[in-house]
Nucleic acid binder design. Structure first.
Lengths: 249, 249
DNA sequence: TTTGACCTTGACGTGGCGTCAACCTGTTCA
DNA sequence: TGAACAGGTTGACGCCACGTCAAGGTCAAA
């Protein structure tokens, strides 16, 4: 039997067979006078064994180990380990499909659909285009949300939900406008402290405590520092004062 | 923010970030005077988007397509396709785990456990070591079984089950011995036809019809021809006669 | 005689980075 | 001051299970 026949019989490519020879998974058979490999029944059986193990999901290295191992011990261990791997993979795929289902269920095809549906709703509360500060806020929130797992994002969106209600929404628009007015102001401008105070009053209590908790994580605190450097000095100062004020209670 | 900080923030390696720059998934940020990349908030947001899409299972090429696409149309298509892929993968993994469970449930750790449990039982009916013909038969059966899917193997083993019953088992041993005696015989030896006839009578009717059906497949017929060339001439002749006789009814 | 189907070896491509290597920069500690 | 150390830079190879050329040799059929 020549290599093409064996390949057709086993349902693999000739390249695959030669690959297995190269890896030592399959012994090289006799050669005919013209150099062609001449396969016999035992080669077909050996190839079928390799394929069965490979199709179970073992790597070719593992297949070699199993074949080299005369007792079934190693095989059993590998199969157990493999089953555990597959179970994990299965769970991961299920989780991904769940997220996908959530995204697909949303008819909303705005680019923001790459954040979770809940977050999309929150972000719509921010004015677009007109306000540099709102842009900053949007990015901060998007980033903060995307660092969490799906349920974490839902919780996060829940913390922010009070800001989407009509009354709070209107106050939020005003605050954003007042922050934008500080774009060119001095950090010592008296309006800075006032806005910081109003902002502190505006934010939902639960959100504040959750945020302060995570700010105690030094890496997140450091990261916020970095980000504030992108804001005009007075606006950054608002945030500094805000954090101080919130920490005090 | 430098690359290490961004990497820590996003939960990826610096290598990953540079890789995304290379692929054009992430714009190269400004450089500091020393050549270091200086990242800003928008880069962190962009990276988070790439990661979210990649973690959903899109390839990086697909991520690039989605990012380049301003409407959500392409994203929606990809997500649908992706979900179908994941569903297929899920089914494949479930099938593999089912096979694994079957193998693991068998306490039998003999090397033959790489064939299905049913087949292992059938193969135990063949004498080991003493008979070259039995060895051939074992290989043929193993190969024939391994070319099928799990339920196909179960059906196949079921066809062969009559041969494992005590009476048929004893007759089988005798037939194998008689075939071994033909190892050095001439193809025209009168015993050849006799053994072929007894063999035809011995094989289960359902197995015969199923086998003849598949032999009409030219590739399988050709394959059997190849395999018979490994047998001593008289034994091969037995098979040729057997097939002729069975075909006639 | 030519075509066409097969075979041979060898080498590069795939994806998503990990992991060197070889070098530069900037801070910190003795 | 110097040396260590923790960053950064580009570039190149490694991984896995083969797919896919490339550049030929072999053999049966038209």
């Amino acid at each position: 039997m020549r290599i093409g026949e064996l390949a057709a019989l086993a349902g693999v490519s000739t390249r695959t067979i030669r690959h297995y020879h190269h890896l030592g998974l399959l012994p090289e058979p006799e050669r005919l006078a013209n150099g062609y490999r001449e396969y016999r029944l035992r080669d077909a059986v050996a190839l079928a064994r390799v394929r069965r193990l490979a199709e179970l999901g073992l790597s070719l290295d593992e297949v070699r180990d199993v074949l080299a191992d005369d007792e079934g011990q190693e095989l059993r261990e590998m199969l157990l380990e493999l089953d555990a791997d597959l179970a994990r993979e299965q769970a991961a795929i299920a989780a991904r499909r769940a997220r996908l289902a959530g995204l697909l269920a949303e008819a909303d095809l705005h680019p923001d659909s790459t954040v979770s549906p809940d977050m999309a709703e929150v972000l719509r509360g921010l004015p677009t285009g007109t306000s540099a500060f709102a842009e900053f806020d949007r990015e901060l929130l998007t980033l903060a949300a995307s660092g969490r797992d799906p349920e974490g994002r839902a919780e996060f969106a829940e913390l922010l939900r009070p800001l989407t209600e009509p009354e709070a929404y209107a106050r939020g628009q005003v605050l954003i406008a007042r922050l934008d007015e500080l774009a060119d102001a001095d950090p010592d401008d008296p309006r800075v402290a006032v806005v910081a105070g109003d902002l502190a009053a505006h934010l939902p209590g639960e959100m504040v405590s959750a945020t302060l908790g995570s700010l105690d994580d030094t890496s997140i605190g450091h990261w916020l520092e970095e980000m504030l450097r992108e804001l005009p000095a007075a606006q950054a100062q608002v945030f500094q004062l805000l954090v101080k004020r919130l920490r005090r209670g």
